[in-house]
Simulated scan of single mutants.
Amino acid sequence: MDVLADALAAMRAGLPRSARTDVRAPWGLRFPEINGMSFHVVVRGSCWLLPTGDRSQPTQLFPGDLVLLRDGSTHALADQPGTPLTDFDPVLSDPASPIGRVELDGPGAATLMLCGAYQLRRFRAHPLMAELPEVIYIPASRGAHPGLRAAIDLLGSELENARPGGAGIVPALVDAMLLYILRAWMDDHDSESHGWASALLDPAVGGALAAIHSDPARRWTVQDLSATVGLARSTFAERFVRLVGTPPLTYLTWWRMTIAERRLRHSSDPLDVLAREVGYASEFAFAKAFKRELGVAPGQYRRAVAPTDTAPSEKSLVRANSRWTG
């Protein structure tokens, strides 16, 4: 089981949205806060990233550069830091298409970008997300992160040369790019002594996480997990806590309840069926664990939950998740 892909799949709230952005100086675009992560890839030309609240320290971006804003916060792009801003408002030729278009004409230099967003749910976000910096900036360094560079090159080719099939290729590349970005960030942080980047790359702890994600319904014990990865129980338990920040069975419960919460939103399966899917022998045991973790009974949650990123008893839900966000 690929833990990184599994965690992202549990957080997704929809397909990525993106817009081919053709602009000529002078231009400035203001991007609103979104529920997910914002990203920008410069294909041709250059621009400045203007983060909210830090306008004194803009970042210049060049062809092949990429930025990802973890919290989808308000920000701006412009040809120069002082250029007046207009709202980013892509036009969709097809309302069902995840690709839009933005064009701003002017007398100056041309810039081509792909600007977009990954739609991710904030509630019960995987703890890996909390460790990401607010802005991930990946310059177009030759030889670094070849997978990501290849994806960006392919995106650039599709945007520069419109050909049949592009409407299917671009969204798929954008979707894959998020995993490439997270890989690149992990590679740049693999020397850290603790944290999720190190946990996923660690043979023992990463192997235990993969085992949990592969079979969350199994009645795992710390001894089972340590034997799976070939470590003594005490050594494994200490290593897991040091890297992940919580004991193995605490993470197992958290992941089980994350699966259950998502299933309650998207399925009508009886609670006893759902209980067995996440490793509980009875509906009662499952309901008790769910309420302890999320602050509300699963039946009540299913009845009250709305198709949004909020949930009932928000204070108790946030409190139950505070162990991951500090």
Rank of each mutant, 00 (worst) to 15 (best):
M1H: 14
L4N: 08
L4V: 12
L4T: 09
D6T: 13
A7E: 14
G14F: 10
S18P: 00
D22F: 10
V23H: 06
A25M: 01
G28L: 08
L29M: 07
R30P: 07
R30Y: 03
R30H: 12
S38I: 04
F39K: 10
F39I: 06
V41L: 13
V42F: 02
V42C: 10
R44L: 08
G45A: 07
W48D: 03
L49F: 08
L49P: 01
L49I: 01
L49H: 14
T52L: 13
S56M: 07
Q57P: 00
Q60T: 06
F62D: 14
D65K: 03
G72C: 04
S73V: 11
T74A: 15
H75Y: 09
H75F: 11
D79F: 05
T83A: 12
L85Q: 07
P90K: 10
P90N: 05
L92S: 09
S93T: 11
S93A: 15
P95Y: 08
A96N: 14
G100F: 09
D105W: 01
A109G: 05
L114W: 01
C115S: 15
G116Q: 07
Y118L: 07
F123W: 13
A130H: 14
A130D: 13
A130M: 05
E131G: 02
P139T: 07
A140Y: 09
R142I: 14
A144I: 06
H145R: 01
R149M: 03
D153K: 04
G156E: 06
E158W: 11
P164N: 08
G166S: 13
G168A: 12
I169G: 00
D175G: 03
A176W: 08
M177R: 08
Y180H: 15
Y180S: 10
L182D: 08
W185Y: 10
D187C: 07
D187Q: 15
D188E: 14
H189Q: 15
D190Q: 14
S191I: 00
A197E: 02
D202Q: 04
G206V: 03
A208Q: 06
H213G: 02
S214D: 15
A217V: 02
A217Q: 11
V222S: 13
L225M: 06
L225V: 01
A227L: 14
T228Q: 15
G230N: 11
A232Q: 15
R233F: 01
S234D: 15
F236A: 09
F236C: 09
R242P: 05
P247N: 10
P248S: 09
T250S: 14
T250L: 03
Y251C: 02
R256Y: 11
I259Q: 12
I259K: 07
I259S: 02
R262P: 04
L264T: 02
S267P: 00
L271W: 01
D272A: 07
V278W: 01
V278K: 03
Y280H: 12
Y280E: 01
A285P: 00
A287L: 00
K288G: 04
K291V: 02
R292E: 15
Q300I: 10
Y301K: 02
R302A: 12
R303N: 11
R303K: 14
R303V: 02
V305H: 05
A306L: 15
P312S: 04
E314G: 03
K315A: 13
R319G: 09
A320V: 00
S322A: 14
S322G: 09
